[in-house]
């Protein structure tokens, strides 16, 4: 049961990373086509700046957060890590997961309220003379932070239950990037 839930979460976060990867490709194509079309045909792709900054950037930067969190890739300063051994290590890790959980829950809640406000205002920006709606992009943030809090909660649970070294947990934390490449 628990193992199935962990596997499901692992796959879910992997999908988030792939969506982020698609965002990277989309951004690359959009900007490249814009430059080529502007130079060759004097016709830039409309609203490139707005779509890149308001959609692709938000998607790439936040959506895969849960994936990063699952793989323990959030950057930490490990200057004193030698001090944390045995039970102290467990207490410290529980504290770290708890704070991460708190931060992500705060962020999920606050960015959700911001997204609702933008939705109600029907936020858009003008790109030359085209109106580009921007409110949908705001909803990516609460989604990303909610999923990241879910992962933090799981990590906190595994830590408190003393299970983070078990094979199913190790599998959950895997950092494989899609097979060996030499």
């Amino acid at each position: 049961m628990r193992s199935a839930a962990l596997t499901l979460l692992r796959h879910l976060t992997n999908v988030l990373a792939l969506v982020g990867a698609l965002g990277v490709i989309a951004m690359l194509l959009h900007v490249t086509v814009d430059v080529i079309s502007r130079q060759l045909f004097q016709r830039p792709v409309p609203a490139t700046v707005e779509i890149v900054s308001r959609y692709y950037m938000v998607l790439i930067s936040f959506l895969p957060l849960a994936w990063t969190e699952r793989r323990n890739e959030m950057i930490t300063v490990d200057i004193l890590s030698g001090l944390f051994r045995g039970p102290l290590d467990r207490i410290n890790m529980a504290f770290v997961h708890l704070l991460s959980l708190a931060a992500f829950i705060f962020l999920a809640y606050t960015t959700w309220s911001a997204a609702l406000r933008e939705y109600e205002a029907g936020s858009f920006v003008m790109s030359l003379s085209v109106a580009v709606p921007i409110w949908p992009g705001y909803f990516l943030l609460p989604l990303a932070f909610a999923l990241a809090s879910l992962i933090s909660a799981v990590k906190l649970y595994l830590c408190l239950a003393g299970r983070e070294r078990e094979p199913e947990s190790e599998a959950f934390f895997e950092t494989d990037n899609g097979g060996p490449v030499q």
Binding site: R38, Q42, R43, P44, A47, T48, V49, E50, M126, S127, L128, S129
Partner: peptide, 16 residues
């Protein structure tokens, strides 16, 4: 946008 419309009207290409 008014400046962009003017640029288009006059045959220049407005850039964002």
């Amino acid at each position: 946008s008014p400046f962009a419309r003017w640029a288009e009207y006059i045959g220049a290409s407005p850039v964002n």
